[in-house]
């Protein structure tokens, strides 16, 4: 009786934590995804984003710091509106109604996708909430951010400028 239990006990302790096959580490190609758009019928896909610097932000209506990151993202998009730069904000809210309610208080100028099942979130192995990834035109991850503080805005802005410079635009 005990030996079985001991065996299962050891097994759960060792193999319990799940490890991800995917990740989105610096220098790697960011995992592809195809998600429902919050605003229209056509899906938001990563494959379709090429030749552009892409800022992907994972957020949720229940996440406090996400309230700080939205005004910054709106400003970033505004700042780089003439450049090959795109933002995709991916909501991991289980209920899309909460995501929509959250967005009501902002004038969103970028694409918002829904990942209520957490498929993309799992592929990107988010280290925290919010998490963001900056991709170059080859879909390589060139910067990663965990959490959000107001001062992150300048850092992200510089990273985008740097990336745009490298693409020669």
């Amino acid at each position: 009786m005990y030996s079985y239990m001991k065996l299962i006990l050891i097994a759960t302790l060792f193999f319990g934590p799940s490890f991800f096959a995917y990740s989105a580490d610096l220098g790697e190609t960011a995992p592809a995804f195809s998600l429902k758009s919050i605003s229209g019928p056509e899906p938001v896909e990563l494959e379709s984003q090429t030749e552009k610097i892409l800022y992907i932000d994972f957020w949720a209506s229940w996440c406090g710091p996400c309230k700080l990151s939205f005004p910054s993202m709106i400003k970033l998009k505004e700042l780089f509106k003439d450049d090959p730069f795109e933002i995709i904000a991916i909501s991991v809210d289980a209920d899309s109604k909460s995501a929509k309610k959250f967005l009501d208080s902002y004038k969103i100028n970028f694409k918002v996708a829904l990942d209520s099942a957490g498929v993309a979130a799992e592929k990107y192995a988010l280290p925290g909430m919010p998490s963001s990834f900056l991709l170059d035109q080859d879909r390589k991850v060139i910067a990663k951010h965990k959490g959000f503080r107001k001062s992150d805005f300048t850092k992200i802005k510089e990273e985008i400028e740097e990336a745009l410079k490298r693409t020669g635009t």
Partner: peptide, 21 residues
């Protein structure tokens, strides 16, 4: 008790940051 606890702890590790709504 350990048996039960191990379920908890292994269960714990599966709650990812995006699953805490």
């Amino acid at each position: 008790l350990c048996f039960v606890a191990s379920f908890f702890t292994s269960g714990c590790s599966s709650v990812e940051p995006w699953e805490r709504g």
